[in-house]
């Protein structure tokens, strides 16, 4: 089971290493991880997507709380989840389909962000599962793609 947790931590030396080490040491998975400071505070927010059964999640949350700089662990079924993905297409693959690609990207809050003489770059922002679908569709249709995913960010409703 995939789940996302949001961890509010103090901005201090080594805090990212503490969190990541805890996952590694106890054999828990990190599917994706994003970190950025929370404006006007001494805290940062880490958003971690992980996989495991509910018992493992309970332990993850407790072990996170055990780390001294962890202020709060937010687990919710009611997150707004967003992820960004960028795809780089070789121009020769797609030069006759640019209108199609742009139309599909728009369905995923995206667009063609850059074109040069070699590549076309499309970026989209959406729920991780919808990003999965979008990427699957693109990969089925086009070859030699370069794909970058940002990892998920969440906020409670």
């Amino acid at each position: 089971m995939k789940r996302v947790i949001s961890v509010i931590v103090e901005n201090e030396h080594g805090v990212l290493a503490r969190v990541v080490n805890m996952f590694a040491a106890r054999g828990y998975n990190i599917t994706s991880l994003t970190v950025a400071p929370i404006p006007n505070s001494e805290f940062s927010r880490m958003t971690i997507m992980s996989e495991g059964d509910p018992k493992i999640f309970e332990q993850i949350v407790k072990q996170l709380y055990k780390l001294i700089p962890v202020y709060k662990v937010i687990e919710s079924d009611d997150f707004i989840q967003k992820e960004m993905a960028m795809i780089k297409f070789p121009l020769k693959e797609v030069k006759n389909n640019l209108a199609d690609i742009d139309a599909i990207a728009r369905c995923y809050n995206g667009k063609i962000s850059n074109v040069n003489d070699k590549h076309v770059v499309v970026s989209v922002v959406d729920r991780p599962d919808r990003i999965d679908n979008f990427l699957k569709a693109m990969m089925a249709k086009y070859k030699n793609l370069e794909i970058v995913r940002s990892g998920v960010s969440v906020i409670e409703r």
């Binding site: 030396h13 080594g14 290493a17 503490r18 080490n21 040491a25 001294i68």
Partner: peptide, 16 residues
């Protein structure tokens, strides 16, 4: 040092 002791301490500090 703090990298080495991180998993075997309750907490550790590097004083900068």
């Amino acid at each position: 040092a703090v990298g080495v002791t991180r998993p075997i301490t309750k907490h550790n500090f590097l004083v900068k």
